[in-house]
Design a protein around this nucleic acid. Structure first.
Lengths: 230, 230
DNA sequence: GATTGTGAACGAGTTCACAGCC
DNA sequence: GGCTGTGAACTCGTTCACAATC
């Protein structure tokens, strides 16, 4: 497979690459140079054939009989995921969660600097939270243009989430991370991923109940990382 | 399909039931009495055949030519998901996120009261956060037994997450919601779901990059709600 | 006429198993 | 001998399409 023509990588494989990357970063930090598909599979909690197939979508970067090089694979995964650059983020909704995220190191350290936070509540506009001043939702268009924002994060109430999404899309945003417990209506040209704790707990509840009902002989749930994309 | 023998509902369908439930609760709040699979499909952003198949796993609760009754379906989904009762939650890790979750209404309001929070840092033990006092991680076993805890939430650093998981499992917990960006090693009898913002952003990054590379003709990502279960 | 419920067709994702290469 | 890369088989999930029912 060549590099020129962009390969079509299955969504399921894309969702696992960040996990492999995290593990490989840990290996690199402990000076591990090489790994086999078996080793990565054990660390990622998946099977080795899946690891090999997933990595093969990136190209043939392993060596038969030997394995894969940690730093080289980190590079290839980052390239594929678009992590060779930073992606600027704007947060809509300056409540508890929004402010916490704006402060949160994890965004910047992973290459997703939060360059703006806005709200529609006049009481919140103008407040400062960790070097950012809460702007008006009406300024979104300017912020997105001036700061070259790529990703919008919605941390509003569920009632306000759809209009937040509309405003982001109107401002030209095409990737949204939504924390409000609602299904957003968006054009199919926009990627949406949902993080909803209620949903997660309710899924756990189902398997927990199964376990109890059947005298704890339940096979357990699937382990994936996820939220939701559209 | 009868009720006595527990139906095996596909994991993919289980993951959608909480979304349907959320939407139906909204419909009930606006006094809508009935809905068709087409209507729910539009609100949930999926197709109608999928809605019908998903609901059919619960039993045959619709009426041909008419549709489904909102309150009756809410009841059936809650029954299936194990939401006819409360599930007590304990939080391990009393940092920013852990304390925020302990205070967070969304847990209690959805039937998942947080009955305890623990940490291994002596500086944090004894602090009070919204009617809960931070306990010692060593007390987990007692808390789980005395408070009849079913679900553990891990909000520790990634370095401490595995030992937090071990402690929870040792205390008898079989459902874990993990916010630390690591893959936990757990027996297959334990359900784990992972919430990792970094992973979500990196997935968005991939589709965003595709869009840019190909002159914005990208088909967008799949929309699911998720995190990860094992 | 409208809408469900569901086999059957289809498609995506996973795993197997082995040829190919170090 | 060890490990990758990958067609082929298989499993799981989605969608179609239509008979059954109100």
């Amino acid at each position: 497979m060549t590099q020129l023509q962009r390969r079509k990588i299955p969504d399921a494989a894309i969702a696992r690459l960040p996990i492999y990357l995290q593990i490989l970063n840990n290996l690199a930090a402990t000076n591990v140079l090489r790994f086999s598909s078996d080793e990565l599979a054990a660390l990622a909690g998946v099977n080795a054939a899946k690891v090999r197939k997933d990595l093969s979508y990136l190209g043939s970067y392993g060596t038969r009989g030997v394995g894969y090089e940690v730093t080289y694979l980190i590079h290839q995964i980052k390239r594929e995921l678009g992590l060779m650059r930073e992606w600027n983020v704007v947060v809509v909704g300056a409540g508890n969660l929004g402010c916490a995220l704006a402060k949160f190191d994890g965004f910047l350290s992973r290459g997703f600097p939060v360059v703006g936070i806005v709200d529609n509540d006049p009481k919140k506009i103008g407040r400062t939270t960790s070097s950012l001043t809460v702007g008006d939702v009406g300024d979104l268009k300017n912020i997105v243009r001036d700061e070259k924002v790529n990703i919008g994060v919605i941390t509003t109430s569920s009632a306000a989430a759809q209009s937040a999404a509309d405003a982001l899309i109107d401002a030209g945003i095409t990737s949204i991370l939504n924390f409000a417990p609602v299904v957003l209506a968006t054009p199919s040209s926009v990627s949406v991923r949902n993080v909803d704790l209620g949903v997660e707990l309710q899924i756990l509840s189902y398997y927990e109940q199964m376990r109890i009902e059947s005298g704890s002989k339940v096979q357990s749930a699937p382990q994936l990382n996820s939220v939701g994309a559209r």
